[in-house]
Amino acid sequence: MQNKLKDKFPEWCFNNEQGQNSLILTDDLDSLLGCAIEKFVKGNDINYFYSFKSLNVADRTDKRKAIGIDLALHKGKSWCNHVVRINEDDYVNPQTANINALLKIHSGNYFKKYAMSTVLTMWSFYNLPLPETKEGKMLLLCIDSGYLGHYSDSFKDVHTAYLKLLGFEELIDLLNKTHKFEYEMLQGKYNTKAKIKLNNDGYLQTNLPLAELQGLFGIPLELPTQQFTKMFQFQDDIGSTYSIRSKEQIDKRIISFALTGSKKFKYTYA
């Protein structure tokens, strides 16, 4: 990652003490692999599961501060890739490690956004070596369909600029030598869009082929085996930037917030 970007990240990201935080997992591969990176680099492990309807906990006695992974928290530490501003001057969580937040992306310049995964941000920030195999590198780009921008005539330059900021020129070369359909086939082969859910007994389950993915990414990848219980229940809603021009206009206690398009947003509240 180039220093002109890395230097913008919150101070807590540079703390190398081991096991100082717990992690909040959400419902997809981007979050699970992001949690695996945090554990691999800093020894932090999952204690919470956020379903966007509720926050569930495994060990209620764990008092460590939690980090949300691939989670657009309104307050508190998080790694994230979402657009979290409605307007340029909108409130943004000062503890979020989010390229779009750091570079002031909002509804007005939405199509200049970082449109790749949280995992790719973390991989770059922690200066991890790319997967050894071509398939592993391609799978890294499959997460959150991070390859897509390269194959859009109107967005390719923006996509390439972000990969250069991340220090991933090797991935630019790979994208230039591969085709969009190859990534789509890999997404199907490894079921990369499969969700993570809590079953009725409070245990996490998924159809992601974790052992195969672990081998390709070179990082231990597994679901927690502990039983989870509900800690907080939330509600969610959607809105439009045509009528809501700032998060300050939302008269509810926001838990998470993200734009889902240039004119639409979704948020969770208590």
Rank of each mutant, 00 (worst) to 15 (best):
L213K: 09
R253M: 11
T225L: 11
I219M: 03
I143Y: 03
G68H: 01
Y110I: 08
F232K: 13
M116C: 14
N3K: 14
A258H: 15
L32P: 01
Y267F: 12
T178K: 09
L198H: 03
D153A: 15
L55V: 08
N87S: 07
Y48R: 00
A36W: 04
H74R: 08
E11R: 15
G108D: 08
D28C: 04
F234N: 07
I196P: 01
K137L: 04
W79F: 08
D45Y: 05
G146T: 01
Q214K: 06
R60V: 10
D89F: 13
Q20F: 09
T133Y: 11
G108L: 07
A36S: 15
Q187T: 14
S78D: 05
A58C: 06
L73D: 07
Q95G: 10
Q235W: 13
I254K: 07
I250F: 09
E88S: 14
A194S: 15
T206Q: 10
L55K: 06
F265W: 05
V119M: 12
G202I: 10
L259Y: 05
K193Q: 14
T61K: 15
L29M: 08
Y269V: 01
F125T: 03
K252F: 09
I67N: 03
T160S: 13
L216K: 00
P10C: 10
I172V: 14
Q205C: 14
W123A: 03
